[in-house]
Design a binder for these strands. Sequence first.
DNA 1: TAGTGGTCTAGACCACGTG
DNA 2: ACGTGGTCTAGACCACTAC
Lengths: 240, 240
Amino acid sequence: MNTPPRYLEVKQSLVDLIREREWKFGQAIPSEPLLARRFGVSIGTIRHAVTELVAENLLVREQGRGTFVTSHTRDYMLDVFFNIVNEDGHKQLPETEILDFMHARMDTKTAAELGMRTGSAAVRVQNLLRLGGKPVILDELWLPADKFKGITEYMFAHRDGTLFGLYQQNFGHTVVRCNESLQAVVADARTCERLQLTAPAAVMRIVRTAFTHKDVAVETRVRMVDTRFLRYLSIIGKRG
Amino acid sequence: MNTPPRYLEVKQSLVDLIREREWKFGQAIPSEPLLARRFGVSIGTIRHAVTELVAENLLVREQGRGTFVTSHTRDYMLDVFFNIVNEDGHKQLPETEILDFMHARMDTKTAAELGMRTGSAAVRVQNLLRLGGKPVILDELWLPADKFKGITEYMFAHRDGTLFGLYQQNFGHTVVRCNESLQAVVADARTCERLQLTAPAAVMRIVRTAFTHKDVAVETRVRMVDTRFLRYLSIIGKRG
DNA sequence: TAGTGGTCTAGACCACGTG
DNA sequence: ACGTGGTCTAGACCACTAC
Protein backbone atom coordinates (compact mmCIF):
# COMPACT_ATOMS: atom_id res chain seq x y z
CA MET A 1 0.00 0.00 0.00
CA ASN A 2 1.18 3.47 -0.82
CA THR A 3 -0.98 5.94 1.10
CA PRO A 4 -0.35 9.64 0.47
CA PRO A 5 0.90 11.78 3.35
CA ARG A 6 -1.78 13.15 5.65
CA TYR A 7 -0.90 16.74 4.90
CA LEU A 8 -1.64 16.18 1.21
CA GLU A 9 -5.01 14.67 2.07
CA VAL A 10 -5.74 17.66 4.29
CA LYS A 11 -4.62 19.98 1.50
CA GLN A 12 -6.96 18.32 -0.99
CA SER A 13 -9.83 18.53 1.48
CA LEU A 14 -9.19 22.25 1.96
CA VAL A 15 -9.14 22.78 -1.82
CA ASP A 16 -12.44 20.92 -2.14
CA LEU A 17 -14.06 22.97 0.60
CA ILE A 18 -12.96 26.18 -1.11
CA ARG A 19 -14.19 24.97 -4.48
CA GLU A 20 -17.54 23.93 -3.02
CA ARG A 21 -17.74 27.44 -1.55
CA GLU A 22 -18.06 26.31 2.05
CA TRP A 23 -15.62 29.18 2.62
CA LYS A 24 -16.14 32.10 0.28
CA PHE A 25 -13.57 34.32 -1.43
CA GLY A 26 -12.13 36.84 0.97
CA GLN A 27 -13.47 35.05 4.05
CA ALA A 28 -11.36 33.59 6.83
CA ILE A 29 -11.09 29.84 7.13
CA PRO A 30 -11.22 28.28 10.64
CA SER A 31 -8.20 28.69 12.90
CA GLU A 32 -5.41 26.16 12.81
CA PRO A 33 -6.32 24.43 16.13
CA LEU A 34 -9.92 24.06 14.92
CA LEU A 35 -8.81 22.58 11.61
CA ALA A 36 -6.44 20.24 13.46
CA ARG A 37 -9.32 18.88 15.54
CA ARG A 38 -11.64 18.70 12.52
CA PHE A 39 -9.21 16.61 10.48
CA GLY A 40 -7.80 14.66 13.44
CA VAL A 41 -4.20 15.75 12.82
CA SER A 42 -1.75 17.94 14.68
CA ILE A 43 -1.35 21.66 14.07
CA GLY A 44 1.96 21.07 12.34
CA THR A 45 0.27 18.98 9.67
CA ILE A 46 -2.37 21.67 9.12
CA ARG A 47 0.38 24.27 8.81
CA HIS A 48 2.19 22.16 6.22
CA ALA A 49 -0.94 21.92 4.07
CA VAL A 50 -1.83 25.60 4.48
CA THR A 51 1.74 26.70 3.70
CA GLU A 52 1.56 24.96 0.33
CA LEU A 53 -1.83 26.46 -0.47
CA VAL A 54 -0.46 29.91 0.35
CA ALA A 55 2.45 29.26 -2.05
CA GLU A 56 -0.13 28.27 -4.69
CA ASN A 57 -2.03 31.54 -4.23
CA LEU A 58 -5.20 29.89 -2.95
CA LEU A 59 -4.95 31.15 0.64
CA VAL A 60 -3.44 34.22 2.28
CA ARG A 61 -2.16 34.32 5.88
CA GLU A 62 -2.36 37.44 8.01
CA GLN A 63 -0.70 37.25 11.40
CA GLY A 64 -3.04 37.92 14.26
CA ARG A 65 -6.09 38.05 11.97
CA GLY A 66 -6.45 34.68 10.32
CA THR A 67 -6.09 32.81 7.04
CA PHE A 68 -8.25 33.95 4.14
CA VAL A 69 -9.40 32.54 0.82
CA THR A 70 -7.63 34.55 -1.90
CA SER A 71 -9.82 37.24 -3.39
CA HIS A 72 -8.94 38.85 -6.71
CA THR A 73 -11.04 41.90 -5.90
CA ARG A 74 -9.15 42.84 -2.80
CA ASP A 75 -5.63 44.15 -2.93
CA TYR A 76 -4.06 40.72 -2.95
CA MET A 77 -3.06 39.56 -6.37
CA LEU A 78 -4.00 42.87 -7.91
CA ASP A 79 -0.85 43.04 -9.93
CA VAL A 80 0.65 39.60 -9.42
CA PHE A 81 -0.32 38.64 -12.95
CA PHE A 82 0.76 41.90 -14.58
CA ASN A 83 4.45 41.93 -15.50
CA ILE A 84 4.61 45.08 -17.58
CA VAL A 85 6.50 48.06 -16.19
CA ASN A 86 7.73 51.39 -17.47
CA GLU A 87 11.36 52.12 -18.23
CA ASP A 88 12.14 52.86 -14.57
CA GLY A 89 10.90 49.43 -13.57
CA HIS A 90 7.79 50.81 -11.88
CA LYS A 91 4.46 49.11 -12.33
CA GLN A 92 1.50 51.21 -13.40
CA LEU A 93 -1.96 49.76 -13.94
CA PRO A 94 -3.56 50.80 -17.24
CA GLU A 95 -7.10 51.93 -18.02
CA THR A 96 -9.16 49.56 -20.18
CA GLU A 97 -11.44 50.42 -23.10
CA ILE A 98 -13.59 47.70 -24.63
CA LEU A 99 -13.40 47.82 -28.42
CA ASP A 100 -15.50 44.78 -29.20
CA PHE A 101 -17.49 42.03 -27.49
CA MET A 102 -18.95 39.14 -29.48
CA HIS A 103 -19.87 35.47 -29.44
CA ALA A 104 -17.70 33.43 -31.77
CA ARG A 105 -16.31 29.98 -32.48
CA MET A 106 -12.78 29.08 -31.49
CA ASP A 107 -10.16 28.74 -34.17
CA THR A 108 -7.74 25.84 -33.90
CA LYS A 109 -4.98 27.63 -31.98
CA THR A 110 -7.32 29.23 -29.48
CA ALA A 111 -9.06 25.92 -28.88
CA ALA A 112 -5.71 24.22 -28.33
CA GLU A 113 -4.70 26.83 -25.75
CA LEU A 114 -7.96 26.28 -23.86
CA GLY A 115 -7.84 22.51 -24.16
CA MET A 116 -11.07 22.42 -26.18
CA ARG A 117 -12.22 21.47 -29.68
CA THR A 118 -11.94 23.71 -32.71
CA GLY A 119 -15.26 25.46 -33.23
CA SER A 120 -16.31 25.37 -29.56
CA ALA A 121 -18.56 28.25 -28.52
CA ALA A 122 -16.65 31.19 -27.07
CA VAL A 123 -16.77 34.84 -26.20
CA ARG A 124 -14.22 37.10 -27.85
CA VAL A 125 -13.38 40.50 -26.40
CA GLN A 126 -11.04 43.13 -27.74
CA ASN A 127 -9.60 45.65 -25.32
CA LEU A 128 -7.38 48.68 -25.67
CA LEU A 129 -5.25 49.51 -22.61
CA ARG A 130 -3.90 52.99 -22.01
CA LEU A 131 -1.23 54.36 -19.71
CA GLY A 132 -1.42 58.08 -19.13
CA GLY A 133 -3.94 58.35 -21.95
CA LYS A 134 -1.64 56.76 -24.54
CA PRO A 135 -2.70 53.41 -26.06
CA VAL A 136 0.02 50.85 -25.34
CA ILE A 137 -1.58 47.39 -25.28
CA LEU A 138 -4.07 45.72 -27.61
CA ASP A 139 -5.74 42.62 -26.18
CA GLU A 140 -7.85 39.90 -27.75
CA LEU A 141 -9.44 37.66 -25.10
CA TRP A 142 -11.14 34.32 -25.62
CA LEU A 143 -13.35 32.75 -22.95
CA PRO A 144 -14.90 29.28 -23.28
CA ALA A 145 -18.69 29.87 -23.33
CA ASP A 146 -19.50 26.79 -21.27
CA LYS A 147 -17.54 28.14 -18.32
CA PHE A 148 -18.98 31.66 -18.54
CA LYS A 149 -22.73 31.15 -19.05
CA GLY A 150 -24.60 34.45 -19.08
CA ILE A 151 -21.60 36.71 -19.41
CA THR A 152 -22.38 40.12 -20.94
CA GLU A 153 -20.51 43.13 -22.21
CA TYR A 154 -22.13 45.09 -19.40
CA MET A 155 -20.43 42.89 -16.79
CA PHE A 156 -17.10 43.46 -18.51
CA ALA A 157 -17.53 47.22 -18.72
CA HIS A 158 -18.97 47.78 -15.25
CA ARG A 159 -16.89 45.45 -13.11
CA ASP A 160 -15.35 47.16 -10.09
CA GLY A 161 -12.14 45.15 -9.89
CA THR A 162 -9.88 43.11 -12.13
CA LEU A 163 -11.10 40.74 -14.82
CA PHE A 164 -9.93 37.83 -12.68
CA GLY A 165 -12.07 39.22 -9.85
CA LEU A 166 -15.04 39.14 -12.21
CA TYR A 167 -14.32 35.53 -13.17
CA GLN A 168 -14.06 34.56 -9.53
CA GLN A 169 -17.07 36.37 -8.12
CA ASN A 170 -19.52 35.66 -10.93
CA PHE A 171 -18.35 32.32 -12.23
CA GLY A 172 -16.35 30.75 -9.43
CA HIS A 173 -13.12 30.48 -11.43
CA THR A 174 -10.09 31.42 -9.33
CA VAL A 175 -7.04 31.99 -11.49
CA VAL A 176 -3.84 30.87 -9.76
CA ARG A 177 -1.44 30.54 -12.68
CA CYS A 178 -0.75 32.11 -16.07
CA ASN A 179 1.46 30.77 -18.84
CA GLU A 180 2.85 33.48 -21.08
CA SER A 181 4.59 32.88 -24.41
CA LEU A 182 6.40 35.95 -25.74
CA GLN A 183 7.58 36.85 -29.20
CA ALA A 184 8.78 39.95 -31.01
CA VAL A 185 6.90 40.61 -34.25
CA VAL A 186 6.55 43.35 -36.82
CA ALA A 187 3.25 45.05 -36.11
CA ASP A 188 0.50 44.54 -38.69
CA ALA A 189 -1.48 47.48 -40.07
CA ARG A 190 -4.37 47.16 -37.64
CA THR A 191 -2.07 47.01 -34.60
CA CYS A 192 -0.11 50.01 -35.84
CA GLU A 193 -3.34 51.94 -36.18
CA ARG A 194 -4.70 51.03 -32.78
CA LEU A 195 -1.41 51.69 -30.97
CA GLN A 196 -0.60 54.77 -33.07
CA LEU A 197 2.66 53.34 -34.45
CA THR A 198 4.36 54.17 -37.72
CA ALA A 199 5.39 51.12 -39.73
CA PRO A 200 7.70 49.32 -39.61
CA ALA A 201 7.34 48.90 -35.85
CA ALA A 202 8.28 46.03 -33.55
CA VAL A 203 5.78 44.97 -30.89
CA MET A 204 5.77 42.26 -28.27
CA ARG A 205 3.20 39.56 -28.92
CA ILE A 206 2.17 37.67 -25.78
CA VAL A 207 -0.03 34.62 -25.84
CA ARG A 208 -1.22 34.15 -22.31
CA THR A 209 -3.46 31.45 -20.87
CA ALA A 210 -4.92 31.56 -17.36
CA PHE A 211 -5.47 28.43 -15.30
CA THR A 212 -7.41 27.58 -12.16
CA HIS A 213 -6.03 25.39 -9.42
CA LYS A 214 -6.88 22.16 -11.23
CA ASP A 215 -5.05 23.23 -14.40
CA VAL A 216 -8.28 24.08 -16.18
CA ALA A 217 -7.79 26.90 -18.70
CA VAL A 218 -10.43 29.61 -18.34
CA GLU A 219 -9.07 32.36 -20.54
CA THR A 220 -6.53 32.91 -23.26
CA ARG A 221 -5.50 36.20 -24.74
CA VAL A 222 -3.26 37.51 -27.46
CA ARG A 223 -1.69 40.72 -26.30
CA MET A 224 0.21 43.22 -28.45
CA VAL A 225 2.42 45.55 -26.45
CA ASP A 226 4.15 48.71 -27.62
CA THR A 227 7.49 48.31 -25.82
CA ARG A 228 9.06 51.57 -26.90
CA PHE A 229 8.52 52.88 -23.37
CA LEU A 230 7.49 49.71 -21.55
CA ARG A 231 9.28 46.53 -20.53
CA TYR A 232 8.21 43.03 -19.69
CA LEU A 233 9.84 42.11 -16.39
CA SER A 234 10.70 38.55 -15.44
CA ILE A 235 12.44 37.47 -12.26
CA ILE A 236 13.87 33.96 -12.22
CA GLY A 237 14.86 32.24 -9.00
CA LYS A 238 14.89 33.41 -5.40
CA ARG A 239 11.36 32.87 -4.33
CA GLY A 240 12.26 33.58 -0.71
CA MET B 1 14.51 43.86 22.18
CA ASN B 2 13.52 42.37 18.88
CA THR B 3 15.58 39.23 18.33
CA PRO B 4 15.21 37.49 14.98
CA PRO B 5 13.76 33.96 14.95
CA ARG B 6 16.28 31.19 15.53
CA TYR B 7 15.66 29.59 12.16
CA LEU B 8 16.72 32.83 10.42
CA GLU B 9 19.91 32.91 12.47
CA VAL B 10 20.57 29.30 11.52
CA LYS B 11 19.84 30.11 7.88
CA GLN B 12 22.32 32.98 7.91
CA SER B 13 24.95 30.76 9.51
CA LEU B 14 24.44 28.14 6.81
CA VAL B 15 24.78 30.79 4.10
CA ASP B 16 28.01 32.03 5.69
CA LEU B 17 29.44 28.53 5.89
CA ILE B 18 28.67 27.95 2.21
CA ARG B 19 30.18 31.29 1.23
CA GLU B 20 33.30 30.61 3.24
CA ARG B 21 33.56 27.28 1.41
CA GLU B 22 33.46 25.15 4.52
CA TRP B 23 31.11 23.06 2.38
CA LYS B 24 31.98 23.08 -1.30
CA PHE B 25 29.70 23.17 -4.34
CA GLY B 26 28.15 19.82 -5.02
CA GLN B 27 29.11 18.43 -1.60
CA ALA B 28 26.66 17.23 1.01
CA ILE B 29 26.18 19.31 4.14
CA PRO B 30 25.89 17.50 7.51
CA SER B 31 22.68 15.61 8.27
CA GLU B 32 19.81 17.36 9.96
CA PRO B 33 20.31 15.77 13.41
CA LEU B 34 23.99 16.78 13.30
CA LEU B 35 23.15 20.36 12.36
CA ALA B 36 20.52 20.45 15.10
CA ARG B 37 23.11 19.50 17.72
CA ARG B 38 25.71 21.85 16.25
CA PHE B 39 23.38 24.88 16.42
CA GLY B 40 21.61 23.83 19.61
CA VAL B 41 18.16 23.82 18.05
CA SER B 42 15.64 21.11 17.22
CA ILE B 43 15.45 19.36 13.88
CA GLY B 44 12.29 21.25 12.99
CA THR B 45 14.15 24.54 13.17
CA ILE B 46 16.94 23.19 10.96
CA ARG B 47 14.36 21.98 8.48
CA HIS B 48 12.70 25.39 8.38
CA ALA B 49 16.00 27.09 7.55
CA VAL B 50 17.04 24.46 4.99
CA THR B 51 13.62 24.58 3.31
CA GLU B 52 14.05 28.30 2.67
CA LEU B 53 17.56 27.84 1.31
CA VAL B 54 16.28 25.15 -1.04
CA ALA B 55 13.60 27.56 -2.27
CA GLU B 56 16.34 30.12 -2.84
CA ASN B 57 18.35 27.67 -4.95
CA LEU B 58 21.30 27.53 -2.58
CA LEU B 59 20.76 23.93 -1.42
CA VAL B 60 19.24 20.84 -2.99
CA ARG B 61 17.61 18.02 -1.01
CA GLU B 62 17.73 14.41 -2.14
CA GLN B 63 15.75 11.95 -0.12
CA GLY B 64 17.81 9.12 1.32
CA ARG B 65 21.09 10.72 0.14
CA GLY B 66 21.48 14.06 1.81
CA THR B 67 21.34 17.82 1.27
CA PHE B 68 23.81 19.30 -1.19
CA VAL B 69 25.23 22.70 -1.98
CA THR B 70 23.85 23.72 -5.36
CA SER B 71 26.27 23.17 -8.19
CA HIS B 72 25.78 24.83 -11.55
CA THR B 73 27.95 22.25 -13.25
CA ARG B 74 25.83 19.29 -12.30
CA ASP B 75 22.40 18.77 -13.76
CA TYR B 76 20.69 20.94 -11.20
CA MET B 77 19.96 24.40 -12.44
CA LEU B 78 21.21 23.55 -15.90
CA ASP B 79 18.27 25.17 -17.56
CA VAL B 80 16.57 26.95 -14.68
CA PHE B 81 17.80 30.27 -15.97
CA PHE B 82 17.04 29.58 -19.62
CA ASN B 83 13.46 30.46 -20.56
CA ILE B 84 13.65 30.18 -24.32
CA VAL B 85 11.77 27.35 -26.00
CA ASN B 86 10.84 26.36 -29.52
CA GLU B 87 7.32 26.69 -30.91
CA ASP B 88 6.22 23.40 -29.35
CA GLY B 89 7.20 24.66 -25.90
CA HIS B 90 10.21 22.33 -25.66
CA LYS B 91 13.48 23.56 -24.27
CA GLN B 92 16.65 23.00 -26.30
CA LEU B 93 20.04 24.14 -25.14
CA PRO B 94 22.01 26.02 -27.80
CA GLU B 95 25.68 25.79 -28.80
CA THR B 96 27.79 28.85 -28.07
CA GLU B 97 30.39 30.50 -30.31
CA ILE B 98 32.55 33.28 -28.92
CA LEU B 99 32.72 36.20 -31.35
CA ASP B 100 34.74 38.58 -29.23
CA PHE B 101 36.44 38.86 -25.82
CA MET B 102 37.93 42.14 -24.63
CA HIS B 103 38.66 44.31 -21.62
CA ALA B 104 36.63 47.51 -21.64
CA ARG B 105 35.15 50.27 -19.50
CA MET B 106 31.50 50.19 -18.52
CA ASP B 107 29.12 52.61 -20.17
CA THR B 108 26.55 54.29 -17.94
CA LYS B 109 23.72 51.81 -18.45
CA THR B 110 25.89 48.75 -17.94
CA ALA B 111 27.39 50.24 -14.80
CA ALA B 112 23.93 51.00 -13.47
CA GLU B 113 22.82 47.41 -14.03
CA LEU B 114 25.86 46.12 -12.15
CA GLY B 115 25.58 48.68 -9.37
CA MET B 116 28.97 50.19 -10.22
CA ARG B 117 30.39 53.47 -11.48
CA THR B 118 30.51 54.49 -15.13
CA GLY B 119 33.96 53.68 -16.49
CA SER B 120 34.65 50.80 -14.11
CA ALA B 121 36.91 48.10 -15.50
CA ALA B 122 35.03 45.25 -17.11
CA VAL B 123 35.26 42.29 -19.46
CA ARG B 124 32.98 42.33 -22.49
CA VAL B 125 32.17 39.13 -24.35
CA GLN B 126 30.09 38.66 -27.46
CA ASN B 127 28.54 35.28 -28.10
CA LEU B 128 26.51 33.79 -30.90
CA LEU B 129 24.15 30.98 -29.91
CA ARG B 130 22.91 28.42 -32.41
CA LEU B 131 20.11 25.89 -32.34
CA GLY B 132 20.41 23.14 -34.89
CA GLY B 133 23.22 25.07 -36.54
CA LYS B 134 21.11 28.19 -37.14
CA PRO B 135 22.13 31.41 -35.33
CA VAL B 136 19.23 32.54 -33.14
CA ILE B 137 20.64 34.53 -30.21
CA LEU B 138 23.27 37.27 -30.09
CA ASP B 139 24.65 37.99 -26.61
CA GLU B 140 26.76 40.80 -25.24
CA LEU B 141 27.98 40.03 -21.71
CA TRP B 142 29.56 42.41 -19.24
CA LEU B 143 31.44 41.18 -16.17
CA PRO B 144 32.85 43.49 -13.48
CA ALA B 145 36.65 43.01 -13.61
CA ASP B 146 37.11 43.24 -9.85
CA LYS B 147 34.93 40.17 -9.31
CA PHE B 148 36.58 38.13 -12.08
CA LYS B 149 40.29 38.68 -11.61
CA GLY B 150 42.32 36.60 -14.04
CA ILE B 151 39.49 35.59 -16.33
CA THR B 152 40.59 34.67 -19.86
CA GLU B 153 39.01 33.90 -23.17
CA TYR B 154 40.44 30.42 -22.84
CA MET B 155 38.40 29.80 -19.69
CA PHE B 156 35.28 30.93 -21.52
CA ALA B 157 35.91 28.80 -24.57
CA HIS B 158 37.03 25.65 -22.76
CA ARG B 159 34.67 25.50 -19.83
CA ASP B 160 32.92 22.13 -19.51
CA GLY B 161 29.62 23.32 -18.11
CA THR B 162 27.46 26.43 -18.08
CA LEU B 163 28.80 29.95 -17.72
CA PHE B 164 27.31 30.09 -14.25
CA GLY B 165 29.23 26.94 -13.40
CA LEU B 166 32.41 28.71 -14.49
CA TYR B 167 31.60 31.70 -12.31
CA GLN B 168 30.96 29.44 -9.35
CA GLN B 169 33.91 27.10 -9.63
CA ASN B 170 36.57 29.61 -10.55
CA PHE B 171 35.38 32.76 -8.81
CA GLY B 172 33.03 31.61 -6.06
CA HIS B 173 30.00 33.49 -7.38
CA THR B 174 26.84 31.41 -7.14
CA VAL B 175 24.03 32.91 -9.21
CA VAL B 176 20.65 32.37 -7.57
CA ARG B 177 18.51 34.98 -9.32
CA CYS B 178 18.22 36.72 -12.68
CA ASN B 179 16.22 39.82 -13.52
CA GLU B 180 15.19 40.00 -17.15
CA SER B 181 13.74 43.07 -18.87
CA LEU B 182 12.22 42.30 -22.28
CA GLN B 183 11.43 44.53 -25.20
CA ALA B 184 10.56 44.10 -28.87
CA VAL B 185 12.77 46.16 -31.17
CA VAL B 186 13.50 46.50 -34.88
CA ALA B 187 16.81 44.74 -35.45
CA ASP B 188 19.76 46.95 -36.37
CA ALA B 189 22.01 46.14 -39.32
CA ARG B 190 24.61 44.26 -37.28
CA THR B 191 22.03 42.09 -35.54
CA CYS B 192 20.35 41.32 -38.87
CA GLU B 193 23.68 40.25 -40.29
CA ARG B 194 24.67 38.05 -37.35
CA LEU B 195 21.26 36.39 -37.09
CA GLN B 196 20.79 36.19 -40.86
CA LEU B 197 17.63 38.30 -40.89
CA THR B 198 16.28 40.44 -43.71
CA ALA B 199 15.32 43.95 -42.62
CA PRO B 200 12.94 45.09 -41.36
CA ALA B 201 12.90 42.35 -38.71
CA ALA B 202 11.58 42.36 -35.14
CA VAL B 203 13.76 40.78 -32.46
CA MET B 204 13.40 40.38 -28.73
CA ARG B 205 15.87 42.45 -26.76
CA ILE B 206 16.51 41.08 -23.27
CA VAL B 207 18.56 42.91 -20.67
CA ARG B 208 19.38 40.37 -18.04
CA THR B 209 21.33 40.79 -14.83
CA ALA B 210 22.46 37.89 -12.65
CA PHE B 211 22.67 38.16 -8.85
CA THR B 212 24.26 36.13 -6.09
CA HIS B 213 22.53 35.38 -2.83
CA LYS B 214 23.37 38.75 -1.30
CA ASP B 215 21.91 40.66 -4.26
CA VAL B 216 25.33 41.40 -5.69
CA ALA B 217 25.22 41.68 -9.50
CA VAL B 218 27.95 39.60 -11.17
CA GLU B 219 26.93 39.70 -14.81
CA THR B 220 24.68 41.63 -17.14
CA ARG B 221 23.97 40.82 -20.74
CA VAL B 222 22.06 42.26 -23.64
CA ARG B 223 20.54 39.44 -25.60
CA MET B 224 18.97 39.69 -29.06
CA VAL B 225 16.70 36.78 -29.89
CA ASP B 226 15.23 35.84 -33.24
CA THR B 227 11.72 34.83 -32.16
CA ARG B 228 10.44 33.72 -35.53
CA PHE B 229 10.70 30.13 -34.39
CA LEU B 230 11.39 30.59 -30.67
CA ARG B 231 9.35 31.83 -27.73
CA TYR B 232 10.19 33.27 -24.33
CA LEU B 233 8.19 31.32 -21.77
CA SER B 234 7.08 32.80 -18.47
CA ILE B 235 4.98 31.04 -15.84
CA ILE B 236 3.40 33.22 -13.21
CA GLY B 237 2.03 31.80 -9.98
CA LYS B 238 1.68 28.23 -8.70
CA ARG B 239 5.03 27.46 -7.25
CA GLY B 240 3.73 24.20 -5.73
C1' DT C 1 -8.13 40.37 27.14
C1' DA C 2 -8.92 36.95 23.85
C1' DG C 3 -7.85 34.94 19.54
C1' DT C 4 -4.93 34.49 15.64
C1' DG C 5 -0.81 32.97 13.13
C1' DG C 6 4.61 32.41 13.92
C1' DT C 7 8.16 29.97 16.16
C1' DC C 8 10.10 26.02 18.50
C1' DT C 9 10.75 21.61 20.99
C1' DA C 10 12.14 16.59 21.43
C1' DG C 11 11.21 13.24 20.02
C1' DA C 12 8.73 9.12 16.82
C1' DC C 13 8.12 6.41 12.65
C1' DC C 14 8.30 5.94 7.47
C1' DA C 15 10.35 5.92 2.63
C1' DC C 16 14.31 6.00 0.12
C1' DG C 17 19.25 5.20 -1.37
C1' DT C 18 23.59 2.85 -0.67
C1' DG C 19 26.66 -0.70 0.65
C1' DA D 1 21.58 -2.87 7.91
C1' DC D 2 22.29 1.77 8.16
C1' DG D 3 21.90 6.65 7.38
C1' DT D 4 19.40 10.06 4.96
C1' DG D 5 15.52 13.20 4.33
C1' DG D 6 10.05 13.18 4.78
C1' DT D 7 6.21 13.07 7.75
C1' DC D 8 3.90 13.73 12.11
C1' DT D 9 2.84 14.52 17.06
C1' DA D 10 1.16 17.31 21.17
C1' DG D 11 2.02 20.47 23.03
C1' DA D 12 4.59 25.41 24.59
C1' DC D 13 5.46 30.33 24.21
C1' DC D 14 5.70 34.67 21.43
C1' DA D 15 3.98 38.56 18.33
C1' DC D 16 0.35 40.67 16.36
C1' DT D 17 -4.70 42.28 15.78
C1' DA D 18 -8.97 43.52 17.35
C1' DC D 19 -12.14 44.82 20.75
